[in-house]
Amino acid sequence: MIEISGVSLTLGGSGILNDVNLTVPKGGVTALVGPNGAGKSSLLSLIARLQPLQSGRITVDGLAVDTTPSRELAKVMAILRQDPGVASRLRVAELVGFGRFPHHRGRLTAQDREIVAASLEQFDLGDLSLRFIDTLSGGQRQRALVAMTFCQGTDYILLDEPLNNLDMFHARNLMRTLRRIGDEHGKTVLIVLHDINHAAAHADRIVAMKDGAVVASGDTEAIIRPDVLESIFGFPMLVERVAGRLAVLHHT
């Protein structure tokens, strides 16, 4: 469970987050949606202790993120930032392998290697595993970074717009993988998504943010409704059921 209570954030004199209270239950996929500048990335980086907590309290699996040693948290929660900007000239397999660092803090064990190999396979990186990441396309590099995040093998996975740069095939593949690890392994995935249809199709719960506050949160069915979506994004859109699935027509 991720518990956020009374969290506010001010940067450079302007309020970014304003008294955010939120509970993300353990297990399953929770999508975080909202317009640009809503504060989604800021909230994620506070949960992942990438920024100091200014006020309020955040716990992940009962561990307070501001007082628990960082190396302990690294075994519980993994984060992929929106713009990680990893510029090192590493091979894909090496990069993904560093995801295991929190566990061995030295040399990769045989078990680590197995997990790395499985991760490479999972994200369709087998053929690219020996390529330097600075020679990859944006989407390929994004997949390598996602694979590294998965390799960390944590119970909590935070992903900030991981579908950036991914083609339809790999975007779908990633969402289905998230769905599966949420179902099979009881892991908790908190993912920032821009495409509301991915959220509608794969998330158990949706949290909507706007202007630095949580404006709606609940089961997917309760959020994917024309009136709720309009209040979040500020324009009307159609919600239909196609072959039993929710589809949002937001581009017409």
Partner: peptide
């Protein structure tokens, strides 16, 4: 060496992996 390599990935990636 491993810690320096992680450092070269940047601050966020380093903290995410539990590096001091």
């Amino acid at each position: 060496a491993d810690r320096l390599t992680i450092l070269s990935m940047g601050r966020d990636a380093s903290i995410g992996l539990g590096l001091n």
